[in-house]
Amino acid sequence: MKRWLIAAVPALVACTVPDAPSHLGGYPFAHVSGGIFHWPANRLPVRFWADPRGNMNALVQNAIDVWQDQFMYGEFTGVLVSDSAHADVQFTWSDSVPPAVAADPGPPVKACGGNTQPDSTDANGQIWGAFHSGITILLVGATPGQVEACVRRTVIHEMGHGLGILNDNAPDSTDIMYFTPLVPVPSAADRTTIQTLYHTTPNWLPPVR
């Protein structure tokens, strides 16, 4: 009986030892001013509005799904809303609207650009107004499929800024948050970075609704 107990107790202890992964390998996410921001739990789901022109709606929904899949523990959820006045993040075409076609699976072509910023921030770290993400089509002679692939990854990249990665410091071209996104989905470093951000205490407050 005693021998059974001696064998059973260490086995039981071994069974319950946590095997949490390291979660290392991210990159800096703070704003150049030192600002740290993420959407707090009481503001989920984050509300996104997409320009009704072209296929922006599908592009934003795809980006929401892609970023949601980077989280394991309910840190971020997003939803598309039809009223821009009640959105936390707005996605618009800055000028021309490309045709909705299948994305070219070939090598990436920089056929578009993007920009994301809130209306304003103040000295107390309060963000005012919605985040605005604009997508620009560049005149580089790219095929419609190459443009579609570019805007697809750029919308994911800009949404990364809207979620709180407030710089373009991703060091590797395999990261979706590299200053020029060249990959279709977030890398392991992007994943670690956004997870770490959402478990870090922010010093910027979310916009007042």
């Binding site: 946590p18 992964p21 394991m72 523990y73 997870q195 770490t196």
Partner: peptide, 12 residues
């Protein structure tokens, strides 16, 4: 169900 640590420890 899960014990993990991202910056700080937490349970699910």
């Amino acid at each position: 169900l899960v014990h993990d640590q991202i910056v700080t420890a937490f349970d699910v």
